[in-house]
């Protein structure tokens, strides 16, 4: 696939737009259709497209395996951490209103955005990990 100029150029052209759209879907989750899961998949699709066109080895240079492992854990940490924080602040688990007690609506918007960003991080990382596991030869 070294001489696939058209594919490589199109992928290069589309990747930033796919990433921005993925982030838009993640952070628009509390006000419209979308959310962390769908946005994370779109975000991962941008990198998977890159890997499909340029080869799995090139993916390793921009998103190392270690980074996706760490981000998958950090996303879950953000999700659970938000829940534990609201519990420590005096509410139930993921009781977003506790984030800004003076203004519950704003707290709910913030809570959802934070949680969705954690979900998006984890989903994108796990998607990339799955793709990598399927695409690379098993080390016998």
């Amino acid at each position: 696939m070294n001489d696939a100029v058209v594919l490589r150029t199109t992928a290069k052209l589309l990747m930033p737009f796919m990433m921005v759209f993925g982030l838009y879907v993640i952070f628009h989750g509390e006000a419209g259709p979308g959310g962390g899961f769908q946005g994370g998949v779109i975000l991962a699709a941008a990198f998977i497209l890159y890997a499909l066109v340029n080869g799995i080895d090139k993916l390793e240079t921009i998103v190392p395996e270690r980074l996706t492992d760490v981000l998958a854990a950090v996303g879950v940490l953000i999700f659970a951490g938000t829940g534990v924080y609201t519990m420590l602040a005096g509410g139930a688990f993921l009781d977003y209103a506790q984030i800004t007690p003076s203004n519950p609506e704003a707290g709910q918007a913030w809570g959802m955005t934070i949680v969705e960003s954690g979900v998006g991080m984890t989903v994108a990382s796990v998607m990339l990990t799955l793709f990598r596991e399927f695409a690379t030869e098993p080390a016998e």
Binding site: A4, V6, L7, T10, L13, L14, F17
Partner: peptide
């Protein structure tokens, strides 16, 4: 614009 770029590329691939 997105379809205009991607559809011919997919056919090409």
């Amino acid at each position: 614009i997105f379809i205009l770029v991607t559809s011919p590329t997919a056919t090409h691939a």
